[in-house]
Nucleic acid binder design. Structure first.
Length: 459
DNA sequence: GCATGATCATGC
DNA sequence: GCATGATCATGC
């Protein structure tokens, strides 16, 4: 058994103790009681770590797990992507949102800050097949500190990762946005996609058993929610190679909406030709399929694929081109999926799922009858929950058919929201299907009629 | 060489 | 005219 070899009132001592877990799983580094090892559902890894590794019982109130040190402990799963990088498996849930009390709080003295001002994060390698006690902590833990930079007198704690003041401003604004929804009696309309880095995610069982909460300024019951960091934000923390990205300067002085307005404002209503001339960027060839997308990046004056703030917030930039009737010319494509992989996957682990959870920046160009194409409007959008359920249905249909060795995948006529279509370089860009047949790579698409409705309803 | 965002082409 | 199939250019 592990002894109390650390000081519960010291962040650095707790951190040093946590550091010794690196490279090991809980079962490797502690002698767990037999009943825990044999238990089928062993429960939450964070709780087990506190109990059996730290020999610590956290207070059952709004204090952090280690009250004397002011430190909250979190464990979170990582997974490897195709490029071999470790990515957050899911959002990092921080603390429950109390609709009754948040309306009376201010950010600096909020329940959130009281509990989460300093967070010790332990990263383990997620694998569905591996029991939680056998999951290895594959990288050094990290302490995330929400204290404003100016209050830090000395920085001798090398492991502390201070949240940059620009990010802190975004997070604070996100927090106030969520509070405002409750003040407006709209807690039931809150969605994870409303905000940028800090989100109000659903918590507890969904479906029929879901328990709903009352809210102070409306009779409507609202879903239980918790504050969380978006996976995209955790991934930025993990990589921290921000110097390779262009920044829009979003932070204390500038928020996302303002930044977008500043960048695009002067070009709204202008023709492609005019914008092209102003930015000295023209079609690179007669058949430059990505021209509008590339022009959009020029408008944002970025060289990287997207601004670093968009990377952190998980914002996807998509261009939509409308015909003279105001209808999208094309459906909207997503990355090609792997036939053999999808049949093993759960919806929540799919690429399509994570893409649809993202926020989108839609950049809309419209061609008028005289042939003039104009930058029409730019706006942020999130797919409503009910439509994500429909997209899920299409995804599940795809999976089911592939498993049944039926390669007729869902067509646009089968769903209001999404369909499956080829996404290859050419007719030779094939991939193996479960039926054994090679088939041109495919991807999920959002139907153009669906996009048309999204545009109409967001006007 | 390949993933990606996107557009082109065809047949009903 | 539209749904579906096919393919393109770019950038890393």
């Amino acid at each position: 058994m592990t002894n109390h070899v650390y000081d519960k009132s010291s962040v650095s001592s707790i951190y040093e103790h946590a550091l010794k877990l690196t490279g090991y799983s809980l079962s490797e580094i502690t002698n767990l009681p037999v009943d825990i090892v044999n238990q089928r559902n062993r429960g939450d890894l964070g709780t087990l770590i506190e109990k059996f590794y730290f020999q610590h019982t956290p207070p059952n109130n709004s204090e952090p797990d280690f009250p004397e040190a002011g430190l909250e402990l979190k464990t979170t799963g990582l997974k490897k992507n195709a490029q071999g990088e470790f990515l957050a498996k899911e959002r990092l849930v921080l603390t429950m949102i109390n609709f009754q009390t948040i309306t009376k709080e201010e950010w600096n003295s909020s329940t959130f800050m009281r509990k989460c001002k300093k967070i010790l994060i332990l990263f383990y390698l997620f694998n569905k097949e591996t029991p939680v006690i056998d999951r290895k902590f594959i990288r050094k833990p990290m302490v995330l500190d929400f204290s404003p930079v100016e209050y830090q007198l000395k920085d001798d704690l090398k492991y502390v990762s201070r949240i940059p003041s620009g990010d802190l401003a975004v997070i604070e604004k996100d927090w106030y946005f969520i509070r405002q929804r409750v003040l407006d009696g709209k807690a039931h309309e809150i969605s994870e996609g409303d905000t940028f880095y800090l989100a109000a995610c659903r918590k507890g069982s969904g479906g029929e058993n879901e328990t709903l909460q009352s809210q102070p300024f409306s009779k409507e019951k609202a879903k239980t929610r918790a504050f969380s960091f978006k996976p995209s934000y955790i991934n930025r923390i993990l990589k921290a190679d921000n110097e390779n990205y262009d920044s829009l300067g979003i932070g204390q002085q500038l928020d996302f909406e303002q930044a977008v307005r500043i960048k695009f404002g002067k070009y709204i209503g202008k023709s492609i030709n005019e914008i092209s001339k102003t930015l000295n960027f023209y079609k690179l060839s007669n058949n430059h399929k990505g021209f509008h997308r590339d022009l959009t990046n020029r408008i944002l004056s970025i060289k990287s694929k997207k601004p670093v703030e968009f990377e952190k917030a998980g914002i996807e930039i998509k261009t939509i081109r409308l015909n003279s009737k105001g209808l999208p010319r094309e459906s909207m494509s997503f990355p090609a999926f792997n036939f053999m992989e999808i049949i093993e996957q759960q919806w929540e682990d799919s690429i399509f799922f994570s893409k649809l959870e993202n926020k989108f920046l839609f950049v809309v160009y419209k061609t008028y009858e005289n042939g003039n194409e104009v930058l029409e409007r730019v706006f942020f959008w999130n797919m409503p929950y009910r439509d994500r359920l429909e997209a899920r249905r299409v995804w599940e249909l795809t999976k089911t058919r592939l498993i049944a060795k039926n390669n007729n995948l869902p067509a646009a006529s089968e769903s209001y929201v999404a369909h499956v279509r080829p996404k290859g370089r050419d007719s030779k860009d094939l991939a193996l299907t479960p039926s054994g047949e090679m088939k041109v790579k495919q991807c999920f698409w959002l139907n153009k009629n669906y996009i048309a409705d999204v545009l109409t309803s967001s006007e």
